[in-house]
Design a protein around this nucleic acid. Structure first.
Lengths: 360, 360
DNA sequence: GCTGGCACTCGGTAGACTCGACTGCCAGAG
DNA sequence: CTCTGGCAGTCGAGTCTACCGAGTGCCAGC
């Protein structure tokens, strides 16, 4: 009631834990991650790493709880790590973590055998990552923000339909099917192709308003249709390429069905997911625990992120979403390895002259 | 134990229920769909449609149970419809069902404002359908099985990379990025474009083995690379375009988290989903209840399907996945309407001269 | 400063009990 | 023959109690 203790200890910044407290915290986090049960002092005493009696551990635990690393669900229960406790664990305690040989094998065979379009590739990567870790995975691909038009082509499909294909400088392709008048011939389409190609090449998708003036009204009509259709593409292509793998794993990660529902519906909103990963990466972290990412509906989740680089630039991210009591070392290792492989793969366009080298 | 009754009644095929039994069954199904609680005889007596005492209803209920339309979870509980009971309900009892004005409005504004590529379109349609019904939705688009190549183009991206773009006769576009030698010039790419275009136009994606012979080794190298990359596309394009909308709704449909998990992981397997919908449609049904689809992991689910037609051919399907106690009239109406709109939209390529006509 | 011991606190489980919602059956009325 | 009201019986769900065990906080002693 009248304990002055907890108040006057705010301005301690570096917040070092002495090695025994750290060992105790580590033991608690490790066990809790494994069992999901509050950890009592005697369990910690039996765990390797500390060789003091449970009574001593108890007194350390009250200190850890006072400092915000642990909480008690109720009196006469063991302790559970707080977000802060997990944070200390990942920052100072957890050993780097590595993939098992089987997982390693999975990853490298996945990337050596990988083929197909980039979208498929990212999609399958998200499944891979989810398989590796048993958590839900998210893969965000490089955005087409600053890509410019490289080539435009109008291809007739039938007498009244044609497809406009736009190739972007990053290799992405946007296409739209348009209606055309029956009087439009293949030479008109060729004319439209070269007109559009000339007008658009070099500009970004979202600002190609200039419609090229041509003599032929047939051609102009086709160009107008094409411009209209592709302008829509420019507008809607803000939506990043994001893929979620293994959402069903979430049902295994949480036991409250409400939580599962909430998290799933978050994952359905691509924009939210993308900005979440981006925020975490921008703050220089690789993992955001519980409320750290400031996103209330995911307060019971932890997010592990690894960047994807493309030509030196950061061009996307891979992430894992699990409960705060997730296996951080394993998750971080998996995300990191997959992110690195994916970076290399995207950069080389699945051309891997070195074989499957695995630099650490 | 020694009751001879249930045995000698197998060969009754048309299985007509007299009108009172039907009314009772209808009342039970309706109430159970609403409350998810076993329905007792007195509830049925109060429900409109039958005006007999609960005792009479009880005796009718034992008959319905004997015939397999109802089950009792345990003695002294109310009755729950079986799959057979739901089947009778949807076949003979449920009124057609219609969308509310707000939903109708949603659908038509969605399809009039719709734009973008076909993939995006299908994806968003699945979200729409899920929104309308609060069930998980599945949309399967037209497959590219028998589409043939209409045009091939090789576009240089940088000194060492190029994109091969293949336009198919149905308007779909496949593209792959390939590596090219630095010595390849833009004229070589043009040569490769025309060689590939000439060789492939008119053939299906999955059997374009013939590599066109050219004099120039540079061009041939590009063609070989392109062929290799696109052959992969042909192989992997068996995977149908399938989109799942609102998977988080599943968490609201079932209360056992294990069920949610199982169903979600089914939905992750696109092939399974596609063949499920196809099977249901092929058997001429629009709804498969519980074990009717013979797919064990979804025994607690009902599937409502509506076809998508394109130029008179069936070219896909929209579906809803919910608990067996789902609101069949509403779900069937929603699927049917969305399927019809989608058919029209795909056929017309979002060119709707009539406005939003809504023929029934 | 660490340790063993001790009293105390709760959550979870098991058993007994009650309550209520059903059913099945039966005798009697229409 | 059919329907109805009544009655006894069944069983799940909720409540209450007691108990056990895990775990804590505190304290005296080494």
């Amino acid at each position: 009631m009248t304990a002055p203790d907890p108040t006057h200890r705010a301005p301690r910044e570096p917040e070092e834990l002495d090695s025994r407290k750290a060992a105790i915290l580590e033991a608690i986090v490790t066990e809790y991650i494994g069992t999901a049960q509050p950890v009592g002092s005697s369990h910690v005493a039996q765990a390797s790493g500390v060789s003091v009696s449970s009574a001593t551990i108890r007194s350390e635990m009250v200190a850890l709880e006072r400092d915000g690393y642990l909480v008690q669900p109720h009196t006469s229960a063991g302790r559970i790590p707080t977000d802060k406790g997990y944070r200390f664990f990942v920052d100072h305690l957890s050993t780097p973590g590595a993939l098992g040989p089987a997982q390693r094998q999975k990853v490298s065979s996945f990337f050596t055998q990988a083929q197909g379009g980039i979208e498929d590739m990212l999609e399958r990567t998200s499944s891979l990552l989810s398989d590796l870790t048993s958590y839900a995975a998210v893969v965000v691909g490089p955005s087409h923000e600053q890509a410019t038009v490289r080539s435009v082509q109008v291809v007739g499909l039938s007498a009244v339909r044609a497809t406009v294909v736009v190739v972007l400088s990053d290799g992405a392709v946007e296409s739209r099917t348009i209606e055309i008048a029956e009087t439009v011939g293949s030479d008109d389409l060729h004319a439209a192709t070269s007109a559009l190609d000339g007008a658009w090449t070099g500009t970004a998708l979202h600002d190609l308003d200039a419609v090229p003036p041509t003599g032929d009204p047939e051609v102009d009509a086709v160009c107008a249709r094409a411009a209209e259709a592709i302008a829509g593409a420019g507008r809607s292509s803000d939506h990043e390429p994001v893929f979620v793998g293994g959402p069903s794993r979430l049902a295994g990660s949480f036991d409250a069905i409400e939580t599962v529902r909430g998290v799933l519906s978050i994952l359905e909103q691509e924009l939210v997911v993308v900005s979440l990963l981006r925020d975490v990466l921008e703050s220089g972290l690789s993992v955001a625990i519980g409320s750290e990412h400031g996103f209330e509906p995911l307060a019971s989740c932890a997010v592990v992120v690894a960047p994807v680089h493309l030509e030196g630039q950061q061009a996307g991210a891979v992430g894992l979403l699990g409960p705060t009591r997730m296996n951080y070392p394993a998750a971080m290792a998996a995300a990191e390895v997959v992110g690195r492989h994916l970076s290399r793969h995207l950069g080389e366009d699945h051309f891997d002259p070195e074989g499957t080298s695995d630099a650490s």
